[in-house]
């Protein structure tokens, strides 16, 4: 049983590194969601159901959603303001 927990922890370590190493942001969001689900299973296995529940709700859906909303808003702005890349001198 403890060996399975150890393998789970190693999988978390590997996927955390893989999330950081992914350079394309859209792919990284999905990797982050996978990482959150894996963390949730780890919490569940090590007898922390409350933490696993908030990790399921936040890590699997809410946190990637925030990132995707930000990316899509940036894309939207780029599509609708072609001259904004010149840079408006504010402040």
């Amino acid at each position: 049983m403890i060996w399975f927990g150890a393998i789970l922890l190693l999988l978390v370590a590997i996927s955390g590194f893989a999330v950081v190493c992914t350079r394309d942001v859209t792919s990284q969001v999905i990797a982050l969601s996978f990482y959150g689900l894996l963390m949730a299973l780890t919490f569940f296995f090590f007898q922390a159901p409350d933490v696993a529940l908030s990790q399921i709700t936040v890590g699997a859906v809410a946190l990637p959603l925030m990132v995707m909303l930000a990316i899509s808003r940036m894309k939207f702005r780029k599509a609708h303001m072609p001259d904004s890349s010149s840079g408006e001198e504010h402040d």
């Binding site: 996927s15 893989a18 999330v19 394309d24 792919s27 990797a31 996978f34």
Partner: peptide, 15 residues
């Protein structure tokens, strides 16, 4: 993990 951590976004979504 292999599906999710490598490749194009569509492939990752399936994983």
């Amino acid at each position: 993990a292999d599906m999710c951590l490598r490749g194009s976004p569509e492939r990752r979504l399936v994983g």
